[in-house]
Design a protein around this nucleic acid. Sequence first.
DNA 1: ACTTGTGAATTCGTTCACAGCA
DNA 2: TGCTGTGAACGAATTCACAAGT
Lengths: 281, 281
Amino acid sequence: MTVDRGTRPARRPVPTTRTPGDDLAPVDVPEGPDGSESSDSTESSDGDTDTASRPVPEATVARLAVYLRVLTTLLAEGRGTVSSEELAAAAGVNSAKLRKDLSLIGSSGVRGVGYDVSRLVAEVEATLGLTRPHAVALVGVGNLGHALAGYGGFAARGFPVAALFDVDPALVGTTVDGVEVEHADTIPRVCAERGVTIGVVATPASAAQTVCDHLVAAGVRSILNFAPTVLAVPAGVEVRKVDLAVEMQVLSFHVARRHGTVPAAGPTATPRQTPREAVSR
Amino acid sequence: MTVDRGTRPARRPVPTTRTPGDDLAPVDVPEGPDGSESSDSTESSDGDTDTASRPVPEATVARLAVYLRVLTTLLAEGRGTVSSEELAAAAGVNSAKLRKDLSLIGSSGVRGVGYDVSRLVAEVEATLGLTRPHAVALVGVGNLGHALAGYGGFAARGFPVAALFDVDPALVGTTVDGVEVEHADTIPRVCAERGVTIGVVATPASAAQTVCDHLVAAGVRSILNFAPTVLAVPAGVEVRKVDLAVEMQVLSFHVARRHGTVPAAGPTATPRQTPREAVSR
DNA sequence: ACTTGTGAATTCGTTCACAGCA
DNA sequence: TGCTGTGAACGAATTCACAAGT
């Protein structure tokens, strides 16, 4: 995993717009896909004779998504070029790393000038396979699942929700954001029919493995798992996981590391309102 | 460089005590979906004289949370001991890595036997700082934020939601799962009053930085960011981010890597239902 | 006989620093 | 002069493999 050492925080890269409170994170970017970062169990040893294959390391792929978000914003602002320094700052990484990342996807910046924004956007999108939509199947329309399904930016970014599944008879048959919820038993058939390539598991941990097996049987090779379980999949299947409990506990660790043992206690007097500038260097 | 990478070996004091199965239990998932994972800017030399410092690498911390989940399950099943081999398989990691991780927190397994489950649970919890609750403030009660707030397992695991914030007048004043939604302007005061130590940002990207600043001003040193933006924070503040878009794009990359360019196409006949080694159970 | 704990080897990723080109 | 692209140094994390307890 990952963990990129505290790099520099970089100041707000985006043009802060948009009304404050409202839903989740649909980003403001006009259109293009974007993303951010993370890291995780990747797994899936591609068993097959994968010829020459991975020029682009996973860590870089995750960052490319972040660069793309920034680039999309810049593009919307009409910027023609960016320097590695500026882009790196906005993405919160070291410029050398950014240049190396871009060189890996065969980028072509211009020495003395920088990178052509629109071109770079196209290159990153091509690398991430965003030039065509990926039908997504979401299993588990409960609390979180429902929120995810209703999350517009999902389909808007090239990931149309092609199917929703659940086993709860009270949910099956209902419609969420225009998509009907079908019974999980139909996963194999429906996913194959609609050409689903990415599956999202948002079920309780107890059902996750079974659901995963069904998705895999339907030909889904990429799965995003929100259930707190380690999914076992055959070689060739990619699983990424998002685990709230893990995140919270990691933060807990840091809280604890700070005040040796002391809980929150007093109303944290310190009115820190610090500078917040670009950290180190 | 600034960052004084943890050099100091120093071990963890870990008060090996505690009765076997007992209290606070981050226990296995009671219900819905959760989690996420990621990694992020860490660092921040805590200004004060930080005595001993970081024996446990970040990567290990994230895994400890996973081990804990498995261990809790085992404990519930009444298992007295586990071997590194079994625990590692269930957590989806290499056994050598698991042993190294555990040795870092000063574990004490018994050669030829394995680890005492209840004791290990206690040690891991102590390391992760789970021996006491951490008040959480959730900002942005929209789509996702609402789902997170309603997610029971949250409070159940030692992370009681002490406050909810939003700027939408239609939401302020309402109650979600017993907690009233307050206006984001009151973040500083309310968080300080209730001793919030962890903040969760589930606002649109445009509001994220501002919200973050308020949380930091209120003394929150650990933030979980669901908004697709790179948050700039002063040294000493820990930010972890969870970004759906990035996850999806990374999966997209893998899908693309497989079939060169071809979309989903045919109903993936292959009935792979393979071995599915290791893990689970 | 079995399983932990850990030094050493290895792999992977990040950062430096500079040559090369516009 | 300015900024990219990249070899080489560096550092972190993983894996190996075995000595050491029980």
